[in-house]
Write a protein that binds this DNA or RNA. Structure first.
Lengths: 250, 250
DNA sequence: CAGTGGTCTAGACCACATA
DNA sequence: ATGTGGTCTAGACCACTGC
């Protein structure tokens, strides 16, 4: 008997999520607009509550929508900060200065909190890059407009920086790179390794990330003239708040 | 009366997810190991099926675990490909060559499929960067070991490349950049804009991404000597398969 | 106070994988 | 054939938001 050779209809909750996503892309819902809630979907489609929730969960985990307790589910905003890798080659001199993504947060001041400076045993990966067993670590959190956007942890070989201003909160004019220069180890080269992943619960809490928001993990190594690694800066960045820009010549 | 000032216990499903995550980090479950399934969690904790599912969904949406239908939920693997931004400055000459993340896929050959070459009206953002209304687009998908890892779409100003090998599948020796050179528009400068986000359903399907996997979106603009943009390459990259590396001098 | 999302229970049927 | 995850129903109580 010819059984229906249908190429597999998606489940109800997927179809609803797809419809809502389409409506958002088509502009029927704008940034910040309230989407139909669980009750609305239940009555509109004649489905159970859990199914309506599942449909909304799809959009939430895609980062397209954000739930607000007791209020509703809302279309999400994307307003990135632009972070330049090598400022020396930065884009202004190239092309018409046109970028793919707008970044209207650029220029607003960062605030810093949660500063912790400590001498620690180096984690396995950090020790391998810096070539040492003990490190001084400077941890802090950056915020823009009161919204946390980045966690950073700078690691230095303990023997190299012991007793210098790098081990205290105020590093003096020029910051840690100037102090490394004072030591005869000014960074002359950087390499950044970039990956993206979903945040750990700890990172999600510290950055106040809604579901569906990845983080970008940037590990920047700084090298002095001899080729020795003098700093390793691990950054955890709210992916919804940032665009990274790298410039280089052919 | 003194009501209990408890700092809010997390819900059951969160606590179970946290326990499992800890066990994974502690090495009790290794890459590829099977985690306790829904039935196991239901009987172990005396909870309903939906609650056990919710606990597993947390780990799946974090990208920590991957569900396999009819089989189980498994601990996920991270084995990235390393992609170099500017090969000229690449890391080998710096430091001890130690990187934060291993990348054992490096060197394995890419395969290419889904090649589509077409002349189109430029999307709003593409047209702004390239300064034109019509573009030739070269789309393709890259795979490693049969696993799709990247979608790429190179855009060229239509007037610039019309009638050249850039508009046909075989671009000849040296590829599109050599052909741009033939036209007197060899790229001398590149800008890459990098962001991360959750994939659209279409992207997730084309890259066969499990839930909890972000994509990295790289938009690379190539500029010729005069400063005109001659190419815009939009890449959608499986974040679980890639580490991007950028090298630059101070 | 009414409506919203957050959590949870106790069932059900299905498609699929493995043995 | 058994067990697994995938989908769905029909309820319930809670905490929180906004009027």
């Amino acid at each position: 008997m010819a059984s229906s050779p249908v190429p597999h209809e998606p489940p109800i909750y997927r179809r609803i999520a797809d419809r809502l996503r389409q409506a958002i892309l088509a502009g029927e819902f704008r940034d910040g607009d309230r989407l139909p809630g669980e009750n609305a979907l239940m009555s509109e489609y004649g489905i159970a509550r859990a199914t309506a929730r599942q449909a909304l969960a799809v959009l939430i985990n895609e980062g397209v929508a954000v739930p607000k307790r007791g209020s509703g589910v809302y279309v999400r905003h994307f307003r990135p900060i632009r972070r330049h890798g090598s400022r020396r080659l930065s884009r202004e001199q190239w092309g018409t200065g046109k970028a793919i993504w707008d970044s209207d947060v650029t220029g607003r001041p960062f605030t810093v909190d949660d500063i912790v400076i400590a001498r620690e045993a180096a984690a396995e990966d950090v020790g391998r890059v810096l070539g040492c067993g003990e490190v001084w670590v400077r941890r802090r959190r950056y915020s823009v407009d009161g919204r946390p956007v980045q966690l950073a942890a700078s690691h230095f070989p303990a023997d190299l920086v012991e007793g210098t201003p790098i081990t205290v909160p105020d590093t003096g004019p020029g910051g840690v790179y100037a102090r490394l220069g004072d030591l005869g180890h000014a960074p002359v080269h950087f390499t950044e390794e970039v990956r993206a992943r979903m945040p750990s619960p700890d990172e999600a809490a510290k950055l106040r990330l809604p579901a569906g928001t990845p983080v970008i993990e940037v590990c920047r190594s700084a090298f002095a003239a001899g080729g020795t690694a003098v700093e390793l800066n691990k950054m955890i960045i709210d992916a919804a708040s940032y665009v990274l820009q790298y410039d280089f010549d052919a």
